[in-house]
């Protein structure tokens, strides 16, 4: 069982959802970004998403675009991102790491070699924004071969007819892009999530993470009420960016401020109590957990 599946199983048994904070690799420099990564599990991160900087991040808003530029200026490359994961794994063997990025750097690295190296560095999942299911064959076979979960994005524009196609071959969890728009712009309403998540649950048993526009502790709590995990990215990067000096260098409190924010988000996520899992049969002998039903708050 993959580290991601184990982690979601454990959280399910604990009756709570997951917080997935995001950091952009090498933003604003390798040491600061490494310190944030090391500190995240202690601050309450259940899984961690690391952004792989790319010159043309078409799905990202101004905040993550700027983070990517800072990361590239600081020398980020795919092999250096894998180096960060390897260093992290020396201290933490349990917290799942998901890499998020764009296809071209992976093509330049070579998809087969990238999946091999990522697996040996300790990467658990991959999200490739500009690789829709129709083109996923470029990467999915190599990821599966090396035991890396291939996480798919589902968007509000993905209709019910298309959902099974999108989720074909998805593993680890489903990433629900909760708004039509780029990262860090608007936030989906509770009502929108209440309509969207059951559509996904109807076709998959995989946990559903909600991202794009999840900024505050209250929004993170709402995300784990509707889904299984909250991904928070731009709000953390805004905090990091605000702590930099005029030359874009990290301040003495950059790491602390980001991790404090992670802590606040984690508290809100953990305060949401979810029903204990009930085992149900799907009628063909296979057993799975049911997460439907009313969600209680403590």
């Amino acid at each position: 069982m993959s580290r991601i599946a184990q982690r979601f199983d454990r959280l399910r048994a604990e009756g709570r959802g997951a917080l997935i904070p995001f950091l952009e690799a090498y933003d604003p420099d390798p040491a600061t970004s490494m310190a944030i990564l090391h500190g995240m599990p202690g601050a309450g991160a259940d899984l961690i998403e690391i952004g792989m900087p790319f010159t043309d991040p078409m799905a990202d808003g101004p905040t993550i675009q700027a983070a990517g530029r800072r990361g590239l200026l600081a020398g980020a490359s795919l092999s250096r991102v894998l180096g960060m994961v390897q260093e992290f794994r020396a201290e933490d063997a349990e917290t799942p790491i998901v890499l998020m990025g764009y296809l071209n750097p992976i093509l330049a690295y070579d998809p087969a070699r990238f999946c091999l190296d990522a697996a040996s560095a300790g990467v658990d999942g991959l999200i490739v924004v500009d690789l829709p299911t129709e083109e996923a064959g470029l990467l999915s076979g190599h990821a599966a071969e090396h035991g890396i979960d291939f996480v798919r994005l589902v968007a509000p524009t993905t209709d019910d007819a298309r959902l099974p196609t999108v989720l074909r071959g998805c593993s680890g969890f489903v990433y629900y892009v909760s708004i039509t728009g780029v990262t860090g712009t608007r936030t989906a309403s509770v009502d929108e999530l209440a309509l969207a998540i059951p559509r996904i649950r109807a076709v998959t048993d995989l946990p559903v993470a909600i991202g794009f526009g999840v900024r505050s502790p209250a929004q993170a709590a709402a995300a784990v009420r509707a889904g299984d995990a909250a991904v928070v990215a731009s709000a953390l990067i805004d905090t990091l960016a605000a702590s930099l000096d005029a030359q874009g260098r990290a301040g003495p409190d950059t790491v602390r401020r980001v991790l404090d924010q992670v802590r606040g988000l984690a508290e809100a996520v953990r305060a949401v109590r979810r029903p204990a899992p009930t085992k149900v049969s799907d009628g063909i002998g296979d057993e799975r957990f049911c997460l439907d039903g009313p969600v209680l708050e403590s």
């Binding site: 500009d130 690789l131 299911t133 589902v154 298309r162 999108v166 892009v177």
Partner: peptide, 20 residues
């Protein structure tokens, strides 16, 4: 039918845009 000219072309966009 996949929008390819040889090995070039295709549809490499985020899922939000795929249905569009």
């Amino acid at each position: 039918e996949r929008g390819r000219f040889g090995t070039y072309g295709g549809q490499f966009v985020a899922e939000t845009l795929m249905p569009l």
